[in-house]
């Protein structure tokens, strides 16, 4: 309940009953929002092909960079 503690920024002069009711109400809201989203997120899986696709892209990127900046002697690169 770290987050709920952070949310207690109401004036202190409110009646105790009112504060506890509102805190309870906020907790219910939090449960119906963040908790629902968390449970939804827990069910979602990253597409299995994504890592391979990313690996291929990085490989292409590096290959393209190698073409643009070939490993030539410094004096040849100066003449380019």
């Amino acid at each position: 309940m770290k987050r709920e503690r952070k949310l207690n920024f109401r004036p202190e002069h409110q009646e105790q009953v009112s504060v506890s009711e509102q805190t309870s109400h906020h907790q219910e809201e939090a449960e119906s929002a963040e908790e629902l989203i968390r449970s939804d997120a827990a069910r979602i899986t990253v597409p299995p092909g994504l890592a391979q696709r990313l690996s291929d892209s990085v490989r292409e990127e590096c290959a393209a960079a190698a073409v643009v900046h070939p490993r030539l002697p410094w004096w040849k690169r100066l003449l380019k």
Partner: peptide, 29 residues
């Protein structure tokens, strides 16, 4: 820009693999 040959394979870039494994689900969601 001259990528290290070792980085051609993601498996060779431990830091990036770790970055992906730890955060891909959160970013995808």
């Amino acid at each position: 820009p001259e990528c290290d040959r070792a980085r051609l394979d993601l498996a060779g870039s431990a830091a990036f693999v770790e970055l992906y494994e730890q955060n891909s689900k959160a970013i995808y969601y």
